[in-house]
Design a binder for these strands. Sequence first.
RNA 1: GCGGAUGGCCGGAUGACCACGGGGGGAACCUCGAGGAAAGUCCGGACUCCAUGAGGCAAGGGUGCCGGGUAACGCCCGGCGGGGGCAACCCCAGGGAAAGCGCCACAGAGAAGAGACUGCCUUGGUGCCGGGGUUCGCUCCGGUGGGUCCAGGGUGAUGGUGAAACGGUGGGGUAAGAGCCCACCACGGACCGGGCAACCGGGACGGUAUGGCAAGCCCCACCCGGAGCAAUGCCGAAUAGGGGCCUCACGCGGGACCGGUCCGAAAGGAUACCGCCGCAGGGACGCUUCAGCCCCGAGGCCCGGGUUGGCAGCUUGACCGCCUUGGCAACAAGCGCGGCAGAGGAAUGGUCAUCCAAGGGGGCAACCCCUGGACAGAAUCCGGCUUACAGGCCAUCCGCGCAA
RNA 2: GCGGGUGUUGUGUAAUGGUAAGACCUUAGCCUUCCAAGCUAAAGACACGGGUUCGAUUCCCGUCACCCGCU
Length: 142
Amino acid sequence: MTPPQAPDKGDTAELSETPSAVSHFVPPVRRLETLRHRPDFLKAASARRQGTPGFMLQARDRSDDQPTRVGFTASKKIGNAVLRNRAKRRLRAVARAVLTSLARPGWDYVLVARPQATVSRPFTDLVADLTSALASVHRAKP
RNA sequence: GCGGAUGGCCGGAUGACCACGGGGGGAACCUCGAGGAAAGUCCGGACUCCAUGAGGCAAGGGUGCCGGGUAACGCCCGGCGGGGGCAACCCCAGGGAAAGCGCCACAGAGAAGAGACUGCCUUGGUGCCGGGGUUCGCUCCGGUGGGUCCAGGGUGAUGGUGAAACGGUGGGGUAAGAGCCCACCACGGACCGGGCAACCGGGACGGUAUGGCAAGCCCCACCCGGAGCAAUGCCGAAUAGGGGCCUCACGCGGGACCGGUCCGAAAGGAUACCGCCGCAGGGACGCUUCAGCCCCGAGGCCCGGGUUGGCAGCUUGACCGCCUUGGCAACAAGCGCGGCAGAGGAAUGGUCAUCCAAGGGGGCAACCCCUGGACAGAAUCCGGCUUACAGGCCAUCCGCGCAA
RNA sequence: GCGGGUGUUGUGUAAUGGUAAGACCUUAGCCUUCCAAGCUAAAGACACGGGUUCGAUUCCCGUCACCCGCU
């Protein structure tokens, strides 16, 4: 299924990023691809994981040269639809702030929201959580 | 000023930086981007498909005072009736109980059509007193009254009850009583008046006959085909152009345009297994009738294989707000102006600053510090209903108090 | 998106409109040297809010929670 359209998306993403990277002084991996399919989530959950006060990080090294992909999970334990959406948005903002510079290409990252904590924890703490969690995940041996 | 009733509205504001989805653009960039309930999915529609329309029947479901409004509704408006409140106002599934069936526990004599039981009154016998007669056993006449019992008659609603008891209260009347009579009330009610209607007002007359429950079954009137945008259509890729079992059907006729076959040199003719046409048959939605139409094999079950892409539907519509006119109103009509997201595992966000509202603390006060935004997130689209909601604003009205 | 079902003591279950039953559990007592078992007794509930009815767990309506299907 992937051969027909996957190269197209990769090509357009790289084409649109290379000039902007040159002209605007931003890190090279600016745009993050999102995980959408259930098997990717299951593989990431069975690989490495690291808990933090604000969320849980799951990561997997795909060992290919495709760009970094990120997924977000907020289950029904988080609360109603408003709280679930807010948790996903805050995680997305944290990922955008941290992963653009610290993520490694060819990896999948999944951020799982926690009840109460993901919505109410200060944003700077969440950023620190993700930075330390990334460090421990990258440091771990496969 | 206090308390209350109804209707409507807002439901954080501004700015900066960094991001996201749609549209436009070559690009820079510009522009748009959640709600009053987006919710619950309780109703009604639009739209699409199920091969179509009309009528009837059956089943099932729904609605239920009257009149309007609406595309439609179980919604809204106005009115009526009943109930609550001093009032403003609020609440009510509010048709039919002489079509039929069923139920009415406990208590009670009796719970649905009816008379029994009990009670009251009265007559006779049984008693007592007085008188007469007497064969002293008793008998006759008159008077009188309480109880028991027996026999007969009259009477009707008296009856620890109960949610509900053959109208209620008072008086007359009577042996006792009774609408038996009278007054008032309740009920039924020919008829008259008002109202489109529900209904309201009056009411001769009737002495009372129609207990309650239909949110029990039911009857009556009206309405309803089903499924749902993951509907549906198109494009592309891949694979396949499947296999097995069961049931039903596989008949008749016509014509000679075309293909096949035969005769003929040709024109043409013949033939009917197939293809064509008609009838019949079969197949389809609960049944049926009619019209019309589709297929020739149809239906069912099981096994096997492939796909999980893209585009459309997709948001401008019975739309919303202001204004004018009509209408008590719901609403309708008109013109002008303004507004209206469109994702597709799903955007509308993150951080910071100031201000506003709220809560807490300090202070005589100005003010200062801290906390920190209610319910809640579009998924095809509309009209309603219901539910959740911090705080605030506006308008009208009612009661009480004070002042003039 | 469309539908269906169920809420009863702490738990899992019954019950025709009229006293809510029984089992396990809990508590107390008896029995036993003690425990268990057994016996006796007690406590403990109709999801919530309205309505119909003389009377509602039951009938009707609306919420809430949970569960289950189909696409």
